[in-house]
């Protein structure tokens, strides 16, 4: 069995984004998603620091240091791009104008609860950034993360252990082992799996009941 790489996880998510959506990408693997949407499919990437219409990273020598994304990386703008301030950017997010947000995650529960900002009640100085706003405001929330922690503990659970970012907000999870929908009233539904992986093997790495899509 060969797990999906970071780029494959991002690519699989990118394949599922239709033309016309306005999409916000979180820091880390989610940022890679934009690299896998072909230029012929027009998707508007929004960054919460007020950029609507982000393009790929700039080629060396063409950087404009005034243009950064939420991860503070240098970006380019596409034709049709616009700038807004933070208040308008988050009004866009909270007002339900973002079709999709893709975030990383520590844990996702079978009811769609997401934990991705703090690792415990006693976290010394948790950093939430815009994650709670995006979790509450985006029309859809997809999570890209490894299926288990580095030491092998499941990250898909019946109930999150870490403090929540948002309640019942995640609709799909792309892991290094599978793509899983979160279905209201049912829980985790497996769409597809890494080549060579069996459903039982996937279930053994998941701390909540998995359902077959078909």
């Amino acid at each position: 069995m060969t797990p999906f790489t970071r780029d494959q996880m991002a690519s699989r998510a990118a394949d599922d984004i239709p033309e016309g959506w306005c999409v916000n990408l979180g820091i880390g693997i989610p940022t890679l998603v934009a690299n896998h949407v072909p230029a012929t499919r027009e998707v508007v990437f929004q960054s919460e620091n007020g950029v609507v219409g982000m393009g790929p990273a700039p080629a060396k020598g063409t950087e404009d240091v005034w243009n950064i994304n939420a991860g503070k990386q240098l970006i380019t703008l596409v034709k049709g791009a616009s700038f807004v301030g933070h208040a308008d950017s988050f009004a866009m997010i909270r007002g339900g104008h973002i079709d999709l947000c893709v975030l990383g995650g520590f844990e996702v529960a079978e009811n769609g609860d997401l934990a991705n900002w703090a690792t415990g009640e006693n976290d010394t100085a948790p950093a939430v950034g815009g994650a709670m706003d995006l979790a509450a405001g985006a029309k859809r929330l997809w999570v890209i993360m490894d299926h288990t922690t580095k030491d092998g503990r499941p990250k898909l659970l019946e109930k999150c252990v870490y403090p929540l970012t948002g309640l019942k907000c995640v609709t799909r999870i792309y892991t290094n082992l599978a793509t899983i929908d979160v279905v209201d009233g049912k829980g985790f539904v497996v769409r597809d799996m890494a080549p060579g992986l069996t459903f039982d093997e996937l279930q053994a790495k998941t701390a909540a009941k998995l359902h077959q899509a078909h």
């Binding site: 939430v128 815009g130 709670m132």
Partner: peptide
């Protein structure tokens, strides 16, 4: 002293 505020809530509190 630290008061953690979600980024959009911070912007909206100021707005």
């Amino acid at each position: 002293e630290l008061e953690i505020t979600p980024q959009g809530t911070l912007a909206e509190r100021i707005r």
